[in-house]
Design a protein around this nucleic acid. Structure first.
Length: 590
DNA sequence: GCCGTTTTCGGCCCGACTGTTTTCAGTCG
Protein backbone atom coordinates (compact mmCIF):
# COMPACT_ATOMS: atom_id res chain seq x y z
CA UNK A 1 0.00 0.00 0.00
CA UNK A 2 1.43 3.36 -1.01
CA UNK A 3 1.53 6.42 1.21
CA UNK A 4 -1.11 8.07 -0.94
CA UNK A 5 -3.45 5.11 -0.52
CA UNK A 6 -2.82 5.00 3.23
CA UNK A 7 -3.47 8.72 3.54
CA UNK A 8 -6.73 8.31 1.64
CA UNK A 9 -7.75 5.43 3.87
CA UNK A 10 -7.10 7.51 6.99
CA UNK A 11 -8.96 10.48 5.49
CA UNK A 12 -11.93 8.19 4.95
CA UNK A 13 -11.76 7.10 8.57
CA UNK A 14 -11.76 10.78 9.49
CA UNK A 15 -14.89 11.29 7.40
CA UNK A 16 -16.71 8.48 9.18
CA UNK A 17 -15.65 9.84 12.55
CA UNK A 18 -16.95 13.25 11.59
CA UNK A 19 -20.28 11.83 10.50
CA UNK A 20 -20.56 9.96 13.80
CA UNK A 21 -19.42 13.00 15.79
CA UNK A 22 -16.53 11.16 17.36
CA UNK A 23 -14.33 12.97 19.83
CA UNK A 24 -12.97 15.86 17.82
CA UNK A 25 -9.42 15.43 19.05
CA UNK A 26 -9.41 11.87 17.85
CA UNK A 27 -10.50 13.23 14.49
CA UNK A 28 -7.68 15.74 14.48
CA UNK A 29 -5.24 12.98 15.37
CA UNK A 30 -6.27 10.89 12.39
CA UNK A 31 -6.12 13.95 10.15
CA UNK A 32 -2.61 14.64 11.30
CA UNK A 33 -1.55 11.06 10.74
CA UNK A 34 -3.04 11.08 7.23
CA UNK A 35 -1.32 14.34 6.39
CA UNK A 36 1.96 13.19 7.81
CA UNK A 37 1.97 9.92 5.88
CA UNK A 38 1.03 11.69 2.67
CA UNK A 39 4.11 13.88 2.93
CA UNK A 40 6.55 11.22 4.09
CA UNK A 41 9.88 10.89 2.23
CA UNK A 42 9.93 7.13 2.27
CA UNK A 43 7.11 4.66 2.14
CA UNK A 44 5.32 4.01 5.43
CA UNK A 45 5.68 0.34 4.56
CA UNK A 46 9.47 0.77 4.73
CA UNK A 47 9.16 2.33 8.17
CA UNK A 48 7.17 -0.71 9.17
CA UNK A 49 9.70 -3.10 7.61
CA UNK A 50 12.38 -1.43 9.73
CA UNK A 51 10.20 -1.64 12.83
CA UNK A 52 9.98 2.13 13.01
CA UNK A 53 6.32 2.74 12.27
CA UNK A 54 5.95 4.76 15.49
CA UNK A 55 8.61 7.20 14.29
CA UNK A 56 6.14 8.66 11.81
CA UNK A 57 4.99 11.97 13.30
CA UNK A 58 1.36 11.85 14.36
CA UNK A 59 1.32 8.08 14.49
CA UNK A 60 1.03 6.95 18.09
CA UNK A 61 0.50 3.53 19.64
CA UNK A 62 -3.11 3.10 18.51
CA UNK A 63 -2.78 4.03 14.85
CA UNK A 64 0.57 2.23 14.69
CA UNK A 65 -1.22 -0.90 15.90
CA UNK A 66 -3.84 -0.63 13.16
CA UNK A 67 -1.19 -0.03 10.50
CA UNK A 68 0.83 -2.96 11.77
CA UNK A 69 -2.18 -5.23 11.40
CA UNK A 70 -2.82 -3.78 7.95
CA UNK A 71 0.72 -4.47 6.74
CA UNK A 72 0.81 -7.94 8.28
CA UNK A 73 -2.55 -9.26 7.15
CA UNK A 74 -3.73 -6.85 4.46
CA UNK A 75 -6.59 -5.72 6.68
CA UNK A 76 -7.24 -3.80 9.85
CA UNK A 77 -10.33 -4.95 11.70
CA UNK A 78 -10.81 -1.51 13.20
CA UNK A 79 -10.51 0.31 9.87
CA UNK A 80 -12.81 -2.15 8.11
CA UNK A 81 -15.40 -1.93 10.87
CA UNK A 82 -15.27 1.87 10.90
CA UNK A 83 -15.58 2.24 7.14
CA UNK A 84 -18.51 -0.19 7.10
CA UNK A 85 -20.53 2.16 9.31
CA UNK A 86 -21.44 4.31 6.30
CA UNK A 87 -22.40 3.69 2.66
CA UNK A 88 -19.19 3.47 0.61
CA UNK A 89 -20.64 5.87 -1.94
CA UNK A 90 -20.02 8.87 0.31
CA UNK A 91 -16.28 8.76 -0.32
CA UNK A 92 -16.22 9.82 -3.98
CA UNK A 93 -18.47 12.76 -3.09
CA UNK A 94 -15.86 14.12 -0.70
CA UNK A 95 -13.77 15.10 -3.72
CA UNK A 96 -16.40 17.60 -4.83
CA UNK A 97 -15.72 21.12 -3.51
CA UNK A 98 -18.20 22.22 -0.88
CA UNK A 99 -19.23 18.69 0.01
CA UNK A 100 -17.83 17.45 3.27
CA UNK A 101 -18.58 14.26 5.21
CA UNK A 102 -21.86 15.35 6.75
CA UNK A 103 -23.46 16.62 3.58
CA UNK A 104 -22.18 13.61 1.64
CA UNK A 105 -23.75 11.30 4.21
CA UNK A 106 -27.06 13.10 4.15
CA UNK A 107 -27.22 13.27 0.36
CA UNK A 108 -26.31 9.63 -0.09
CA UNK A 109 -28.86 8.40 2.43
CA UNK A 110 -31.82 10.58 1.63
CA UNK A 111 -31.42 10.36 -2.13
CA UNK A 112 -30.48 6.66 -2.04
CA UNK A 113 -27.22 7.06 -3.95
CA UNK A 114 -25.61 3.74 -3.21
CA UNK A 115 -23.51 3.14 -6.32
CA UNK A 116 -20.02 4.33 -5.51
CA UNK A 117 -18.97 4.22 -9.17
CA UNK A 118 -21.65 6.60 -10.39
CA UNK A 119 -22.51 8.55 -7.26
CA UNK A 120 -21.18 11.92 -8.45
CA UNK A 121 -23.14 11.84 -11.68
CA UNK A 122 -26.19 10.42 -9.90
CA UNK A 123 -26.12 13.36 -7.54
CA UNK A 124 -25.98 15.71 -10.49
CA UNK A 125 -29.08 14.04 -11.92
CA UNK A 126 -30.94 14.39 -8.61
CA UNK A 127 -29.96 18.04 -8.43
CA UNK A 128 -31.29 18.64 -11.94
CA UNK A 129 -34.59 17.11 -10.79
CA UNK A 130 -34.64 19.55 -7.81
CA UNK A 131 -34.44 16.79 -5.27
CA UNK A 132 -31.82 18.55 -3.14
CA UNK A 133 -33.41 21.92 -2.39
CA UNK A 134 -36.32 20.55 -0.31
CA UNK A 135 -33.99 18.63 2.00
CA UNK A 136 -33.53 19.97 5.52
CA UNK A 137 -30.37 22.04 5.76
CA UNK A 138 -30.22 22.54 2.01
CA UNK A 139 -31.99 25.05 -0.22
CA UNK A 140 -32.17 26.48 -3.72
CA UNK A 141 -28.73 28.02 -3.48
CA UNK A 142 -26.98 24.95 -2.20
CA UNK A 143 -28.58 22.93 -4.96
CA UNK A 144 -27.25 25.35 -7.59
CA UNK A 145 -23.89 25.39 -5.89
CA UNK A 146 -23.67 21.60 -5.92
CA UNK A 147 -24.50 21.50 -9.64
CA UNK A 148 -21.81 24.07 -10.41
CA UNK A 149 -19.23 22.37 -8.25
CA UNK A 150 -19.87 18.92 -9.69
CA UNK A 151 -19.52 20.31 -13.20
CA UNK A 152 -16.24 22.00 -12.33
CA UNK A 153 -15.08 18.83 -10.66
CA UNK A 154 -16.01 16.64 -13.64
CA UNK A 155 -14.21 19.02 -15.98
CA UNK A 156 -10.85 18.43 -14.41
CA UNK A 157 -11.12 18.19 -10.69
CA UNK A 158 -10.39 21.17 -8.47
CA UNK A 159 -9.13 19.71 -5.27
CA UNK A 160 -6.18 17.85 -6.76
CA UNK A 161 -5.49 19.89 -9.86
CA UNK A 162 -2.17 21.65 -9.27
CA UNK A 163 0.07 23.61 -11.62
CA UNK A 164 3.81 24.08 -11.73
CA UNK A 165 5.35 26.93 -9.82
CA UNK A 166 6.53 28.85 -12.88
CA UNK A 167 3.01 29.01 -14.34
CA UNK A 168 1.68 30.04 -10.94
CA UNK A 169 4.29 32.82 -10.77
CA UNK A 170 3.09 34.09 -14.13
CA UNK A 171 -0.56 34.19 -13.08
CA UNK A 172 0.30 35.84 -9.77
CA UNK A 173 2.43 38.49 -11.50
CA UNK A 174 -0.38 39.37 -13.83
CA UNK A 175 -2.85 39.79 -10.95
CA UNK A 176 -0.32 41.77 -8.98
CA UNK A 177 0.19 44.21 -11.86
CA UNK A 178 -3.58 44.54 -12.17
CA UNK A 179 -4.06 45.23 -8.45
CA UNK A 180 -1.32 47.84 -8.25
CA UNK A 181 -3.15 49.94 -10.83
CA UNK A 182 -5.81 50.73 -8.21
CA UNK A 183 -5.20 53.85 -6.14
CA UNK A 184 -6.53 52.26 -2.94
CA UNK A 185 -4.00 49.44 -3.08
CA UNK A 186 -0.52 50.38 -1.92
CA UNK A 187 1.12 46.96 -1.57
CA UNK A 188 0.57 43.46 -2.94
CA UNK A 189 2.20 40.28 -1.70
CA UNK A 190 1.95 36.74 -2.98
CA UNK A 191 1.55 34.41 -0.03
CA UNK A 192 0.52 30.82 0.63
CA UNK A 193 2.26 27.90 -1.02
CA UNK A 194 3.60 30.13 -3.77
CA UNK A 195 5.52 32.22 -1.26
CA UNK A 196 6.77 29.07 0.41
CA UNK A 197 7.93 28.00 -3.05
CA UNK A 198 6.19 24.62 -3.00
CA UNK A 199 6.87 22.58 -6.17
CA UNK A 200 3.27 22.60 -7.35
CA UNK A 201 0.59 25.13 -6.56
CA UNK A 202 -3.14 24.71 -6.03
CA UNK A 203 -4.66 28.04 -5.08
CA UNK A 204 -2.91 31.38 -5.43
CA UNK A 205 -3.03 33.47 -2.27
CA UNK A 206 -2.45 37.19 -2.10
CA UNK A 207 -2.70 39.97 0.45
CA UNK A 208 -2.90 43.71 -0.05
CA UNK A 209 -2.59 46.84 2.03
CA UNK A 210 -5.49 49.15 1.37
CA UNK A 211 -7.03 52.30 2.83
CA UNK A 212 -10.46 51.31 1.51
CA UNK A 213 -11.17 47.59 1.82
CA UNK A 214 -14.61 47.47 0.13
CA UNK A 215 -13.39 49.37 -2.94
CA UNK A 216 -10.23 47.30 -3.18
CA UNK A 217 -12.20 44.05 -2.97
CA UNK A 218 -14.71 45.26 -5.56
CA UNK A 219 -11.82 46.13 -7.85
CA UNK A 220 -10.23 42.71 -7.35
CA UNK A 221 -13.51 41.09 -8.33
CA UNK A 222 -13.38 42.85 -11.71
CA UNK A 223 -10.31 40.80 -12.66
CA UNK A 224 -11.28 38.45 -15.47
CA UNK A 225 -12.88 35.44 -13.80
CA UNK A 226 -15.21 32.53 -14.28
CA UNK A 227 -16.96 32.92 -10.95
CA UNK A 228 -16.78 34.71 -7.62
CA UNK A 229 -16.40 31.91 -5.10
CA UNK A 230 -16.84 34.10 -2.06
CA UNK A 231 -16.70 37.72 -1.10
CA UNK A 232 -16.70 39.37 2.29
CA UNK A 233 -15.37 42.42 4.13
CA UNK A 234 -11.90 40.94 4.65
CA UNK A 235 -11.32 39.40 1.24
CA UNK A 236 -12.63 37.51 -1.73
CA UNK A 237 -11.94 34.39 -3.80
CA UNK A 238 -12.16 34.13 -7.56
CA UNK A 239 -12.17 31.15 -9.86
CA UNK A 240 -10.22 32.32 -12.90
CA UNK A 241 -11.00 31.32 -16.46
CA UNK A 242 -7.90 29.10 -16.45
CA UNK A 243 -9.30 27.07 -13.54
CA UNK A 244 -7.10 28.66 -10.87
CA UNK A 245 -8.55 29.86 -7.60
CA UNK A 246 -7.19 33.15 -6.28
CA UNK A 247 -7.77 34.13 -2.66
CA UNK A 248 -7.28 37.75 -1.66
CA UNK A 249 -7.14 39.10 1.87
CA UNK A 250 -7.04 42.79 2.69
CA UNK A 251 -5.55 44.51 5.68
CA UNK A 252 -4.45 47.94 6.78
CA UNK A 253 -0.76 48.72 7.13
CA UNK A 254 -0.73 48.49 10.94
CA UNK A 255 -1.80 44.83 11.03
CA UNK A 256 -0.15 43.67 7.83
CA UNK A 257 2.59 41.64 9.54
CA UNK A 258 0.11 39.29 11.21
CA UNK A 259 -1.75 38.93 7.91
CA UNK A 260 1.42 37.98 6.03
CA UNK A 261 2.27 35.40 8.65
CA UNK A 262 -1.19 33.88 8.79
CA UNK A 263 -1.75 33.76 5.06
CA UNK A 264 1.66 32.35 4.20
CA UNK A 265 1.00 29.21 6.21
CA UNK A 266 1.54 26.41 6.03
CA UNK A 267 -1.47 25.35 8.01
CA UNK A 268 0.67 22.97 10.05
CA UNK A 269 3.29 25.63 10.67
CA UNK A 270 0.61 27.98 11.95
CA UNK A 271 -0.87 25.31 14.19
CA UNK A 272 2.56 24.57 15.66
CA UNK A 273 3.25 28.26 16.13
CA UNK A 274 -0.13 28.97 17.71
CA UNK A 275 0.15 25.99 20.01
CA UNK A 276 3.57 27.14 21.15
CA UNK A 277 2.31 30.70 21.61
CA UNK A 278 -0.56 29.45 23.76
CA UNK A 279 1.98 27.99 26.15
CA UNK A 280 3.13 31.58 26.64
CA UNK A 281 -0.49 32.70 26.99
CA UNK A 282 -0.48 34.36 23.59
CA UNK A 283 -3.31 33.82 21.13
CA UNK A 284 -2.32 34.36 17.49
CA UNK A 285 -4.56 35.27 14.59
CA UNK A 286 -4.36 37.13 11.29
CA UNK A 287 -5.14 40.34 13.16
CA UNK A 288 -2.37 40.18 15.70
CA UNK A 289 -1.72 38.73 19.13
CA UNK A 290 -3.98 38.63 22.17
CA UNK A 291 -2.27 38.38 25.51
CA UNK A 292 -3.72 36.32 28.37
CA UNK A 293 -7.41 36.90 28.89
CA UNK A 294 -7.34 40.50 27.75
CA UNK A 295 -9.43 41.22 24.71
CA UNK A 296 -6.94 43.66 23.25
CA UNK A 297 -5.17 42.77 20.03
CA UNK A 298 -1.59 43.87 19.65
CA UNK A 299 -0.91 44.75 16.01
CA UNK A 300 2.23 44.10 13.96
CA UNK A 301 3.36 45.93 10.86
CA UNK A 302 5.93 43.32 9.90
CA UNK A 303 6.34 39.58 10.17
CA UNK A 304 9.70 40.03 11.89
CA UNK A 305 8.16 41.82 14.87
CA UNK A 306 5.35 39.28 14.98
CA UNK A 307 7.72 36.33 15.32
CA UNK A 308 9.92 38.30 17.69
CA UNK A 309 6.98 38.91 20.00
CA UNK A 310 6.37 35.17 20.28
CA UNK A 311 10.03 34.81 21.20
CA UNK A 312 11.80 33.61 18.09
CA UNK A 313 13.55 34.99 15.02
CA UNK A 314 11.76 35.37 11.69
CA UNK A 315 11.46 32.07 9.83
CA UNK A 316 12.00 31.97 6.06
CA UNK A 317 8.75 31.07 4.25
CA UNK A 318 10.38 28.06 2.55
CA UNK A 319 10.88 26.46 5.98
CA UNK A 320 7.33 26.88 7.24
CA UNK A 321 6.14 23.31 6.91
CA UNK A 322 6.23 22.16 10.54
CA UNK A 323 9.36 20.21 9.78
CA UNK A 324 11.13 21.28 12.97
CA UNK A 325 11.54 24.95 12.04
CA UNK A 326 9.58 26.28 15.03
CA UNK A 327 11.69 24.27 17.45
CA UNK A 328 14.85 25.37 15.62
CA UNK A 329 13.76 29.00 15.79
CA UNK A 330 13.11 28.79 19.53
CA UNK A 331 16.63 27.49 20.04
CA UNK A 332 18.13 29.90 17.52
CA UNK A 333 19.28 27.01 15.38
CA UNK A 334 17.67 27.96 12.08
CA UNK A 335 19.86 27.28 9.04
CA UNK A 336 21.39 30.17 7.13
CA UNK A 337 19.79 29.27 3.83
CA UNK A 338 21.54 29.31 0.46
CA UNK A 339 20.65 32.32 -1.71
CA UNK A 340 20.29 32.57 -5.50
CA UNK A 341 23.22 34.99 -5.50
CA UNK A 342 25.46 32.28 -4.00
CA UNK A 343 25.30 30.22 -7.20
CA UNK A 344 28.50 30.40 -9.25
CA UNK A 345 27.93 27.87 -11.99
CA UNK A 346 25.64 25.38 -13.70
CA UNK A 347 26.69 21.89 -14.80
CA UNK A 348 23.67 20.70 -16.73
CA UNK A 349 23.37 22.57 -20.02
CA UNK A 350 22.54 21.07 -23.43
CA UNK A 351 23.70 22.86 -26.57
CA UNK A 352 22.50 22.49 -30.14
CA UNK A 353 25.71 20.68 -31.19
CA UNK A 354 24.47 17.56 -32.92
CA UNK A 355 26.13 14.50 -31.51
CA UNK A 356 23.24 12.35 -32.66
CA UNK A 357 22.08 11.88 -29.08
CA UNK A 358 19.85 9.36 -27.38
CA UNK A 359 17.45 12.14 -26.41
CA UNK A 360 16.74 15.71 -27.35
CA UNK A 361 19.29 18.30 -28.41
CA UNK A 362 19.47 21.77 -26.93
CA UNK A 363 18.37 24.72 -28.99
CA UNK A 364 21.17 27.21 -28.31
CA UNK A 365 24.83 27.39 -29.26
CA UNK A 366 27.78 27.31 -26.88
CA UNK A 367 28.72 30.94 -27.51
CA UNK A 368 25.33 32.41 -26.64
CA UNK A 369 25.21 30.18 -23.57
CA UNK A 370 28.61 31.43 -22.46
CA UNK A 371 27.45 35.01 -22.99
CA UNK A 372 24.40 34.42 -20.83
CA UNK A 373 26.43 32.68 -18.14
CA UNK A 374 28.81 35.65 -18.11
CA UNK A 375 25.92 38.08 -17.72
CA UNK A 376 24.68 36.02 -14.76
CA UNK A 377 28.14 36.37 -13.19
CA UNK A 378 28.83 32.64 -13.29
CA UNK A 379 32.42 31.47 -12.80
CA UNK A 380 31.93 28.20 -14.70
CA UNK A 381 29.50 26.08 -16.65
CA UNK A 382 29.38 22.44 -17.64
CA UNK A 383 28.07 21.41 -21.04
CA UNK A 384 26.23 18.13 -20.58
CA UNK A 385 24.65 16.96 -23.81
CA UNK A 386 22.95 13.58 -23.97
CA UNK A 387 25.24 10.74 -24.97
CA UNK A 388 25.26 9.67 -28.64
CA UNK A 389 22.55 7.10 -29.20
CA UNK A 390 23.81 3.57 -28.72
CA UNK A 391 21.40 1.90 -31.10
CA UNK A 392 22.41 3.91 -34.13
CA UNK A 393 26.17 3.86 -33.74
CA UNK A 394 29.04 1.46 -33.35
CA UNK A 395 31.40 1.93 -30.45
CA UNK A 396 34.02 3.38 -32.79
CA UNK A 397 31.54 5.88 -34.19
CA UNK A 398 30.60 7.03 -30.69
CA UNK A 399 34.22 7.48 -29.73
CA UNK A 400 34.77 9.48 -32.90
CA UNK A 401 31.71 11.67 -32.24
CA UNK A 402 32.92 12.39 -28.71
CA UNK A 403 36.37 13.24 -29.96
CA UNK A 404 35.06 15.69 -32.58
CA UNK A 405 32.69 17.24 -30.05
CA UNK A 406 35.51 17.92 -27.64
CA UNK A 407 37.61 19.53 -30.36
CA UNK A 408 34.67 21.63 -31.50
CA UNK A 409 33.89 22.94 -28.01
CA UNK A 410 37.54 23.63 -27.28
CA UNK A 411 37.95 25.63 -30.46
CA UNK A 412 34.75 27.64 -29.86
CA UNK A 413 35.59 28.22 -26.23
CA UNK A 414 39.11 29.31 -26.99
CA UNK A 415 38.00 32.07 -29.31
CA UNK A 416 35.19 33.13 -26.96
CA UNK A 417 37.42 33.26 -23.91
CA UNK A 418 40.01 35.41 -25.70
CA UNK A 419 37.35 38.02 -26.32
CA UNK A 420 35.88 37.64 -22.85
CA UNK A 421 39.02 37.33 -20.71
CA UNK A 422 38.20 33.82 -19.48
CA UNK A 423 35.31 35.23 -17.49
CA UNK A 424 33.50 31.88 -17.51
CA UNK A 425 35.35 28.56 -17.26
CA UNK A 426 34.12 25.57 -19.22
CA UNK A 427 33.77 21.91 -18.28
CA UNK A 428 33.11 19.54 -21.15
CA UNK A 429 30.74 17.00 -19.64
CA UNK A 430 28.06 14.59 -20.78
CA UNK A 431 24.70 13.42 -19.50
CA UNK A 432 24.85 9.65 -19.79
CA UNK A 433 21.87 7.30 -19.66
CA UNK A 434 21.85 4.69 -16.93
CA UNK A 435 20.71 1.53 -18.70
CA UNK A 436 18.17 -0.73 -16.98
CA UNK A 437 20.97 -3.08 -15.94
CA UNK A 438 23.03 -0.26 -14.40
CA UNK A 439 25.56 -0.01 -17.21
CA UNK A 440 26.30 3.42 -18.62
CA UNK A 441 25.41 4.19 -22.23
CA UNK A 442 28.93 5.28 -23.18
CA UNK A 443 31.93 3.13 -24.11
CA UNK A 444 34.73 3.36 -21.55
CA UNK A 445 37.15 4.69 -24.14
CA UNK A 446 34.87 7.65 -24.88
CA UNK A 447 35.25 8.92 -21.30
CA UNK A 448 38.64 10.21 -22.39
CA UNK A 449 36.89 13.08 -24.17
CA UNK A 450 34.97 14.45 -21.23
CA UNK A 451 35.97 16.07 -17.94
CA UNK A 452 33.14 14.53 -15.94
CA UNK A 453 29.74 12.91 -16.31
CA UNK A 454 26.21 13.38 -15.11
CA UNK A 455 24.41 10.04 -15.06
CA UNK A 456 20.63 9.91 -15.34
CA UNK A 457 17.78 7.45 -15.55
CA UNK A 458 15.65 7.97 -18.64
CA UNK A 459 14.01 4.55 -18.95
CA UNK A 460 12.59 1.64 -16.95
CA UNK A 461 11.26 3.81 -14.13
CA UNK A 462 9.09 1.03 -12.76
CA UNK A 463 11.78 -1.31 -11.46
CA UNK A 464 11.42 -2.61 -7.91
CA UNK A 465 13.13 -0.75 -5.10
CA UNK A 466 15.83 -3.42 -4.81
CA UNK A 467 16.56 -3.57 -8.54
CA UNK A 468 16.61 0.20 -8.80
CA UNK A 469 18.98 0.54 -5.86
CA UNK A 470 21.35 -2.03 -7.37
CA UNK A 471 21.08 -0.31 -10.75
CA UNK A 472 22.09 3.06 -9.31
CA UNK A 473 24.93 1.62 -7.24
CA UNK A 474 26.33 -0.13 -10.28
CA UNK A 475 26.10 3.05 -12.35
CA UNK A 476 27.80 5.17 -9.69
CA UNK A 477 30.68 2.71 -9.57
CA UNK A 478 30.91 2.38 -13.36
CA UNK A 479 33.57 5.04 -13.93
CA UNK A 480 35.62 7.49 -11.83
CA UNK A 481 34.45 10.40 -13.98
CA UNK A 482 30.88 9.90 -12.77
CA UNK A 483 30.36 12.98 -10.60
CA UNK A 484 26.69 13.90 -10.60
CA UNK A 485 23.42 11.97 -10.54
CA UNK A 486 20.99 13.95 -12.70
CA UNK A 487 17.33 14.49 -11.68
CA UNK A 488 17.69 11.56 -9.27
CA UNK A 489 14.08 10.46 -8.81
CA UNK A 490 13.10 10.99 -12.45
CA UNK A 491 9.74 12.41 -11.42
CA UNK A 492 7.77 14.65 -13.76
CA UNK A 493 5.44 16.77 -11.67
CA UNK A 494 1.82 15.86 -12.25
CA UNK A 495 2.81 13.23 -14.82
CA UNK A 496 5.12 10.64 -13.37
CA UNK A 497 6.00 9.57 -9.86
CA UNK A 498 9.66 9.28 -8.97
CA UNK A 499 11.48 5.96 -8.84
CA UNK A 500 11.55 3.82 -5.69
CA UNK A 501 15.05 3.60 -4.26
CA UNK A 502 16.74 2.98 -0.94
CA UNK A 503 17.91 6.57 -0.70
CA UNK A 504 19.78 6.05 2.53
CA UNK A 505 22.06 3.60 0.78
CA UNK A 506 22.54 5.84 -2.27
CA UNK A 507 23.22 8.82 -0.02
CA UNK A 508 25.91 6.91 1.91
CA UNK A 509 27.59 5.86 -1.31
CA UNK A 510 27.43 9.42 -2.66
CA UNK A 511 29.14 10.69 0.48
CA UNK A 512 31.80 8.00 0.28
CA UNK A 513 32.57 8.64 -3.40
CA UNK A 514 31.97 12.39 -3.25
CA UNK A 515 29.35 12.22 -5.95
CA UNK A 516 26.78 14.98 -6.01
CA UNK A 517 23.06 14.55 -6.33
CA UNK A 518 21.46 17.08 -8.61
CA UNK A 519 18.65 19.39 -7.68
CA UNK A 520 17.25 19.82 -11.16
CA UNK A 521 15.77 23.32 -11.31
CA UNK A 522 13.42 22.76 -14.20
CA UNK A 523 9.89 23.58 -12.97
CA UNK A 524 8.59 20.30 -14.39
CA UNK A 525 11.10 18.34 -12.35
CA UNK A 526 12.41 20.05 -9.18
CA UNK A 527 14.27 16.86 -8.47
CA UNK A 528 15.67 15.95 -5.89
CA UNK A 529 12.43 16.85 -4.17
CA UNK A 530 12.75 19.14 -1.16
CA UNK A 531 12.00 16.42 1.38
CA UNK A 532 14.84 14.26 0.04
CA UNK A 533 17.15 17.27 0.02
CA UNK A 534 16.42 17.57 3.72
CA UNK A 535 17.39 13.93 4.32
CA UNK A 536 20.45 14.20 2.05
CA UNK A 537 21.80 17.20 3.91
CA UNK A 538 21.49 15.40 7.21
CA UNK A 539 23.78 12.75 5.74
CA UNK A 540 26.16 15.42 4.32
CA UNK A 541 25.56 14.37 0.73
CA UNK A 542 27.12 16.73 -1.87
CA UNK A 543 24.43 18.55 -3.83
CA UNK A 544 24.47 20.71 -6.95
CA UNK A 545 21.68 22.78 -8.44
CA UNK A 546 21.43 22.61 -12.24
CA UNK A 547 19.13 24.27 -14.73
CA UNK A 548 18.97 21.37 -17.24
CA UNK A 549 18.98 24.05 -19.93
CA UNK A 550 17.74 23.06 -23.38
CA UNK A 551 17.08 26.62 -24.60
CA UNK A 552 18.71 29.84 -23.48
CA UNK A 553 15.78 30.94 -21.30
CA UNK A 554 16.01 27.78 -19.21
CA UNK A 555 19.16 29.08 -17.56
CA UNK A 556 16.92 31.46 -15.63
CA UNK A 557 15.22 28.49 -13.92
CA UNK A 558 18.09 28.29 -11.43
CA UNK A 559 16.17 30.14 -8.65
CA UNK A 560 13.49 27.44 -8.69
CA UNK A 561 16.19 24.95 -7.82
CA UNK A 562 17.54 27.23 -5.12
CA UNK A 563 14.05 27.35 -3.62
CA UNK A 564 13.96 23.55 -3.50
CA UNK A 565 17.33 23.57 -1.74
CA UNK A 566 16.08 26.16 0.75
CA UNK A 567 12.95 24.10 1.41
CA UNK A 568 15.33 21.25 2.20
CA UNK A 569 17.18 23.45 4.72
CA UNK A 570 20.29 23.78 2.52
CA UNK A 571 22.98 26.23 3.48
CA UNK A 572 25.55 27.62 1.06
CA UNK A 573 28.14 24.95 1.80
CA UNK A 574 25.70 22.14 1.13
CA UNK A 575 25.41 23.26 -2.49
CA UNK A 576 28.65 22.64 -4.33
CA UNK A 577 28.09 24.95 -7.25
CA UNK A 578 28.45 27.82 -4.81
CA UNK A 579 32.15 26.90 -4.62
CA UNK A 580 34.96 28.66 -6.47
CA UNK A 581 36.23 27.45 -9.83
CA UNK A 582 39.41 26.14 -8.23
CA UNK A 583 37.58 24.01 -5.71
CA UNK A 584 35.18 22.70 -8.32
CA UNK A 585 38.02 21.96 -10.71
CA UNK A 586 39.76 19.83 -8.08
CA UNK A 587 36.57 17.88 -7.62
CA UNK A 588 35.48 17.47 -11.25
CA UNK A 589 38.85 16.77 -12.87
CA UNK A 590 41.35 15.78 -10.20
C1' DG B 1 -5.70 9.62 19.65
C1' DC B 2 -1.29 12.23 20.17
C1' DC B 3 2.20 14.50 22.76
C1' DG B 4 5.87 17.21 25.90
C1' DT B 5 10.92 24.38 26.57
C1' DT B 6 3.97 23.91 30.68
C1' DT B 7 2.79 18.85 31.07
C1' DT B 8 3.70 11.40 30.98
C1' DC B 9 -1.94 13.95 32.20
C1' DG B 10 -4.57 17.35 30.48
C1' DG B 11 -4.63 19.69 27.21
C1' DC B 12 -5.45 20.09 21.97
C1' DC B 13 -5.16 26.98 16.50
C1' DC B 14 -8.18 30.38 14.92
C1' DG B 15 -11.04 32.51 12.02
C1' DA B 16 -13.90 33.49 7.52
C1' DC B 17 -17.84 32.77 4.63
C1' DT B 18 -22.26 30.64 3.04
C1' DG B 19 -26.69 29.10 3.48
C1' DT B 20 -30.27 28.17 6.15
C1' DT B 21 -31.11 29.62 9.92
C1' DT B 22 -33.35 33.33 14.26
C1' DT B 23 -28.23 31.28 16.71
C1' DC B 24 -25.96 27.65 14.00
C1' DA B 25 -23.77 23.92 11.12
C1' DG B 26 -20.78 22.82 7.54
C1' DT B 27 -16.82 23.59 4.91
C1' DC B 28 -12.55 25.58 4.05
C1' DG B 29 -7.81 27.34 4.67
Amino acid sequence: MTNLQLAELLRNIVAVYQINEENRFRIVAYERAADSIKHLTSEAKDYWDDGKINEIPGVGPTIAGHLDELFRTGHSKHFDKTLALVPQSIFPLLLVPGIGPKRAYKLVNELHLMNEKTVVKDLLTKAALHKIAPMEGFGEKSEEEIIKNINTYLKGGIKENRINIRDADEIADSIKTFLLKNKHISKVDVLGSLRRRVATIGDIDMAIITDDAPKAIDYFCTYRHEKIIEKGPTGASLLLTNGRQVDLRVQDADSYGAMLQYFTGSKNHNIKLRTYALSKHLSLSEYGIKEGKKNVIKKFKTEETFYEYIGMPWIAPELREDHGEVEAAIHHKLPKLVEPSDIRGDFHIHTNYNLEPSHDLGRSGLVEILDRAASLGYAYIGISDHNPSVGNHTEEQIIDIMKRRKAFYEQQYSSWSKKNKNSVQLFIMLEIDINPDGDLALPTKAFEYIDAAIISIHSSFQQTRDDMTKRLIKAINAHPKVKIIGHPTGRLLGKREGIEVNWKEIFSLAVEKQIALEINAHPYRLDLPDVLVYDAIKQKVPLVIDSDTHGLGDIENMPYGVSVARRGWAEKDDIWNTFSYNDISKWLKP
